[in-house]
Design a protein around this nucleic acid. Sequence first.
DNA 1: TAGCACTCTGTTATAACGTAACGGCCACGC
DNA 2: GCGTGGCCGTTACGTTATAACAGAGTGCTA
Lengths: 161, 161
Amino acid sequence: MSDPTGFAPHDHHACVSTALAAAEAACAERGARLTPLRRRALEILLESHKALGAYDLLERLAAEGLGDKPPVAYRALNFLTEQGFAHRIERLNAYVACSHPDAAEGHGAAFLICRDCGRVAEALADKAPLGADAQDAGFTVEDAVVEARGLCPQCQSGAGA
Amino acid sequence: MSDPTGFAPHDHHACVSTALAAAEAACAERGARLTPLRRRALEILLESHKALGAYDLLERLAAEGLGDKPPVAYRALNFLTEQGFAHRIERLNAYVACSHPDAAEGHGAAFLICRDCGRVAEALADKAPLGADAQDAGFTVEDAVVEARGLCPQCQSGAGA
DNA sequence: TAGCACTCTGTTATAACGTAACGGCCACGC
DNA sequence: GCGTGGCCGTTACGTTATAACAGAGTGCTA
């Protein structure tokens, strides 16, 4: 398993710029267009390791004059998730930037969600969960989400956020 | 791993009555009240192995004169999920009856969701997924959801629903 | 250079999902 | 009787998401 980044102290500035650079490189390679709007949306998601609701993102974008109608936010988020630069957290109806921009596209993702501070760490699920069960049932898994809620180290030790 | 019921042909009548009996027994034991409304909501969920939206359930209830306002459906669903008689499928914003009413309360659930016919099979996740990752991060998992989307055996063989 | 195709963005309107809050009803126990 | 607590009915609203169409920019090509 890989390290689930997000809770441990880290060089967040580097974390952001690495992700942005990876996104730019991936877009160049794939012919996708990381427009100013999309890039800014990704930057906003990258600012913290918390999940951001579509309307929260929209509010941030609107404050910068980048669009203030829901479809603007949803289109940007669709682009980012399709390209693998962000993930949707189903339990929160919210979105986080991908912590593993270098990983294979469409990698199986697993999330650790702190119910106290709201931060989300992403682990790479390198083996499909449910593999045995699915096979038993003759089910073909195309895409799996794993979302765990609990307490991160800081919040366990009473540090709050 | 246990068998993920729901896709394979089975005696659905028995499936329904077993689940209802288990719910009644559990309520009796816990002092919870399986009122007519709640019981009927559970029956409706049990009618198929598909996930039902809260508003779909409400429509069904309303057709029987059992309440036609959103809170009615949500309260029944909250009761059923709290008691472990039903589960919420986050990816679908929808609810399914529990296929393992005999299992430990609050068991870790994992779902196989057919994207073609919409049926949902439930497997018991007897070991916490993410255990290793969570431990690496010092994260305490309280509750995890696993939801896989794909194709069930029938839909793979072109049978549709 | 005019016309076309394509993609991205702007906007309106509405659908779908979910909940807060209050009041009434009923059963139960004292 | 009378309070208590749980359930249900209702109003009103908040949050999340999408369909559909209009406009702007770019690049191709004939």
